[in-house]
Design a protein around this nucleic acid. Sequence first.
DNA 1: AAAACGTGGAG
DNA 2: TCTCCAAGTTT
Length: 343
Amino acid sequence: MTQEHPRTPGSGASADPARPAPRGRRELPVRDLHARITDWFADAARDLPWREPGCSPWGILVSEVMLQQTPVVRVLPVWREWLERWPSPAHLAAEPAGAAVRHWGRLGYPRRALRLHAAASAMVARHDGEVPRTYEELLALPGVGTYTAAAVAAFAFGRRETVVDTNIRRVHARLFGGTALPAPALTAAETRRAVDLLPEDDALSVRWNAAVMELGAVVCTARSPLCDACPVLDACAWVAAGRPAPDYVPKGQAWAGTDRQVRGAIVAVLRDAHAPVPRSVLLEAPVDLALGTGAVEVAGGAPGTLSALHGLRAPLEQLERALAGLMADGLAEETDGGIRLPA
DNA sequence: AAAACGTGGAG
DNA sequence: TCTCCAAGTTT
């Protein structure tokens, strides 16, 4: 998702992360580190529904998948609706996959909804309708990768797992590495460091994982960190080094004119239609897309119509390619009446 | 291993 | 306005 790209160094000439920490930094025993950050968490943790004691493992799994690349505030309402509608894997598995996609709304990456549905079916088939308790079993579920498997094992089942997400990576990079950002991609050294840092005690390890993640999410943020509120400010290698700028700039994802934009527009139409949409309508005829920011703000065609997409460089071809991609992914199906979400 | 895969709020 | 980027996974 990110890529190295040379950039002018920040103001600090002391940006070399390899050199010893300047005199301002305090070396903190790992025990104290655990205590500082988990104590901070005990006080500062946000009240999130999937953190409540009564939340089911299924609720936690759903939250973790929804939170992949997606901000908490946007997940909240969708998560509530899902859990009310589908309180267990069996409830979701009993519905067509298209229902999962439809109720995913505009969360983004709708294939996650599809995979959650497939995961629910797998849990019914292989785990008696329960969320499995081990990292290995979790990892085998569709849409569950190393982060999500570790997070669910830890947060739903209290297991001692090494959880590494983007927040944790950033906190570690600053606190120990002295850099503004972690490497573009997860490195073996980072994983090793996370393993080494994990408290021995099961219960403490769970709190530690949640606490470091929370610290990265609300204090040690990517853009403008709130260092004044940081419980380990005096131990931070990055602060001690004068908060040097990142040595690369994360590569943003292109959006305008991409297949992803077109796929998003098509899925939006299918999601809001409650009957199959004729291919011709989907590709050419005016349709009220009611889309959000820039989704169809492209040159050519009447605004607010799918035909507006023909203003793209490879208009019709691109539409057909995008549609084919959606069908290949299982996000769309062709029937007699036209295209629809999967049944 | 690089690239694809959505979305909308914030700076 | 426009770029950045938010609890990643898959191929």
